[in-house]
Design a protein around this nucleic acid. Structure first.
Lengths: 181, 181
DNA sequence: AAGTGCAATGTTACAGGGTAACGTCATGCC
DNA sequence: GGCATGACGTTACCCTGTAACATTGCACTT
């Protein structure tokens, strides 16, 4: 589903609410790609053609894409790509902080703050699959005391909220039905 | 991997630390099964033979089991079970709060507080797959303000910390190697 | 230029996770 | 008995992910 946003006021790209609000998405996507390219150059990472293409595909919308969705898009380009091609590019982007894996969906989104070291949380719309990336250090931090008490060493925290985005809530009200797709 | 716990002091069953600490697991498992059975009786839910068997399988250890692991165990009983059999039983247990799905692992564990309405967080050992269930209302609550600000309606929050449990940390130190399996 | 090493890509083949759809069976209710 | 409902049995399939190995391209050395 494309990024429709009929109601909310415009927000700047990079804002957590951007995924669910009207914004200049062309600029939003271009910025993400440029920032990623710059970060790669600075850190000696090779943003190859395939990797850049996969990033561009993810940047096209704020909806999470499965690896096979990405693979299909690569094939539409005329490539005869096999699954590892998509997974390798996605791994590169995720490992280096240019994209995120959404565990709940087994899917991927472009990062809203590429290159930054951050502890993201996600708001996932179960109706349109769009995902908003938020900074939520408090959520992860809330686990530290308990981890310490039991001697558990935390390496990574997944925080994913599932629900319904403002647009899909509005659609549901209009049709008088439930919010499910 | 079985529930080894060579170091920590005993803890009561139901304690968040139980998964990673020495405890009377036979009693821990029996309690979970009994509490679940009672909750089903009270709420008019049918804890059928298959469902009870799947719960018992999950209760055998604090390690997360994949649906196909459960399926294999069912087949060892002599059943000729197909995947939907395992998934239906697991769905029943998860929906009614008697088991949890660990998104990070695509796997399942028995609930430590069956029947209670709670907002669990999980500590997942990436080495032995054991999972400790914690109460972490603060983690989920930390997202509410941002969700409200963007008009997102949260229905469920997944909080999963991945890392290394005390036992596996100790093992890693002994062998002088990394913590990976 | 030839040689070497490494990172990335190409390709095959398969393992693991999950579900739609339909038929059958048991249970409880009128 | 007749009926509705929920659980189970079974088939067939789709989606997700990876091991393993071949090949290519690039950078750096000698």
């Amino acid at each position: 589903m494309p990024d429709r946003a009929p109601v909310a006021a415009p927000v700047p790209a990079g804002d957590p609410a951007a995924a669910f609000a009207r914004h200049d998405h062309a600029r939003c996507a271009a910025t993400a790609r440029e920032v990623t390219a710059r970060a790669c150059a600075e850190r000696g990472l090779r943003l190859t053609e395939i990797r850049a293409r996969v990033l561009a595909i993810l940047c096209e919308s704020h909806a999470a894409l499965g690896a096979y969705d990405v693979l299909d898009r690569l094939r539409e380009d005329g490539r005869k790509a096999q699954p590892p091609v998509a997974y390798r590019a996605l791994d590169f982007l995720v490992v280096n902080g240019f994209a995120h894996r959404i565990e709940r969906l087994n899917a991927y989104i472009a990062c809203g703050h590429p290159g930054d070291d951050h502890a993201p949380a996600f708001m996932i719309c179960r109706s349109c699959r769009r995902v908003a990336e938020c900074a939520a250090p408090a959520a992860a931090a809330a686990l530290s005391p308990q981890a310490a008490a039991m001697g558990f060493e935390i390496e990574r925290v997944v925080v994913e909220a599932e629900g319904v985005c403002p647009d899909c809530r509005a659609s549901a009200r209009e049709t008088g039905g439930e919010t499910g797709a």
